[in-house]
Computed example of a mutant assay.
Amino acid sequence: MSTLTINELKPGMKLNNDVFTARGNLLLPKGKVLMPRDLKILHAFMIDEIQNGIASTTAAPTTEMPLAESGIPAASRSALRIKFEKCYTEMVQATKQAFQSILAEELPIYKLRNQMEELLSYSREYNVLTFTPAYMKKEEYVYHNAVLTSLTSYRIAQWMNLPAKEWMQVAFAGLFHDIGNSKVDPDILHKPSQLTAQEHEEIQRHTLYGYELLKNVKGITDGVRIAALQHHEKVDGTGYPLRLHNSKIHVYARIVAVADIFHAMTLSKYYRQAQSPYLVLEQLDSEAFGKLDPMIVTTFVHKVTQFHNGTRVRLSNGMVGRIIFSDRDHPTRPLIAVGETIYNLMENRKLHIQAVIPG
């Protein structure tokens, strides 16, 4: 069994076996030809030696070729993104019209379904972490939150292996979860300062209002109506309006709760700026114990961070780099390459990802 220290490794050497972190996560796969950056990754993980890990030396590569995002040509991908963004904007406006007229008119459910189906046809272009609405007015926050919660809830339903026939209904649950806000005084809803106890109670009534508004709407299931009622319930029974425990909360409501909280914290509001999506994921993870469904949270966090090696990010110190490795046990604290320097966010707790840079 051959053993080489980290200082003996050279670019161009080929791994005979997988290399794992101290926590047992795959760091570099068998057959990998070592690049200069791989050696820095090994240093970042404080790996001192590789046992039986090196095959023959090959010609040292001079550059690292980036992986393509998909097999679709860049021009076609750009066109699809433009179509997605156009459909998204149209969906937001349709949602705004529906919410503003719900007190006087019947909810145009079939029109909304057609627009939602068109938007979902481009859902491959929707990245939960990197998509940011263009030119979002803060007074339209509730409509953007509705559409984004809808898209994310749809994605979570797929990740949770719900039957395909339920995916659209879960999307509706996300779209309509806050429709009860249409009956809340806008001055209270958009108040930039702290709410009084009476105003807070009125805000909480939006769950009851939402259920009442959806009660007789055709084309949606009871799960959609119940999600509007229950999406602020907590699995430990401390939520509202009914203080239900986990087993009593509908799965649609548990899904929507996760999606809603994520987007509520990563969108700008009157009284709060948007937060880092990675910090929000960490907060969601901590909320999972006693507040949110832990299975849904764990699935959501791991799925949205699973395919982001190469993603450009801005760190909390202002530096811009790329994610080069994500530990499955700590997906919100990956390794970041900034130029020739690698930052291990698992070890450096003072740094965090401030923003994901689309592109």
Rank of each mutant, 00 (worst) to 15 (best):
V320N: 14
V256R: 04
F289M: 08
M319W: 15
E8F: 04
M35L: 06
H177F: 06
I357M: 13
Q158M: 05
T152S: 13
A94G: 04
E199R: 01
E166F: 09
E201P: 00
G223Q: 13
Y252P: 00
I226P: 01
G359W: 06
N317L: 07
R349V: 04
L103H: 07
L34Y: 01
I54A: 08
V280M: 09
D185G: 02
L175R: 13
I226E: 13
F99W: 12
G31A: 06
R77I: 03
I226H: 12
N246Q: 13
Q198D: 11
R349N: 05
A227T: 07
T341C: 08
T196K: 01
M116W: 07
G71N: 10
T152M: 07
Y141M: 06
Q230V: 03
L119E: 03
Y143E: 02
E118K: 11
K96D: 07
R77F: 13
H330N: 15
A44Q: 03
E139G: 02
N216I: 03
T57E: 10
A59T: 15
S182M: 03
N161G: 00
R23A: 15
R124W: 12
V147N: 00
S247H: 14
I220N: 04
E282T: 05
L4Y: 13
Y271E: 10
L148A: 01
P29G: 08
A55T: 08
K234Y: 14
I296N: 01
R225I: 02
T298V: 02
L345D: 03
M168Y: 11
S153K: 01
S2D: 13
Q93E: 14
L284N: 12
D293E: 11
T298C: 06
E139C: 07
E8N: 04
R254G: 08
Y252C: 02
I156R: 02
A104R: 15
W159R: 02
R23G: 12
A75E: 13
R205V: 00
T21W: 05
F176M: 14
L15D: 00
T130L: 02
Q115N: 14
F45R: 05
T21R: 07
A257C: 09
D38N: 12
H190G: 00
R23T: 14
L279A: 11
F176Y: 15
L189E: 06
R254E: 10
E125N: 04
K86C: 10
A22F: 15
M295W: 08
H144N: 08
A68S: 10
T299F: 10
G290H: 05
K14S: 01
Q354Y: 12
T196S: 09
V297T: 03
S276Q: 04
Y252H: 10
I255G: 00
N7C: 07
G12P: 01
S76T: 14
E347T: 12
T149Q: 01
K40D: 08
Y211L: 08
K248F: 02
G223T: 08
V217W: 07
P331R: 09
V356Q: 13
T57H: 07
P61H: 11
P11S: 06
T341Y: 12
I203P: 04
A75R: 12
I342L: 09
T299K: 09
Q198W: 05
S268L: 10
E140N: 15
S56R: 09
T298N: 14
L9D: 00
I156N: 04
E139L: 09
L26A: 01
V170H: 05
P163M: 06
I336L: 10
T62R: 09
L195K: 06
S193D: 06
D236L: 09
P186F: 11
K234R: 15
K165H: 15
V313T: 07
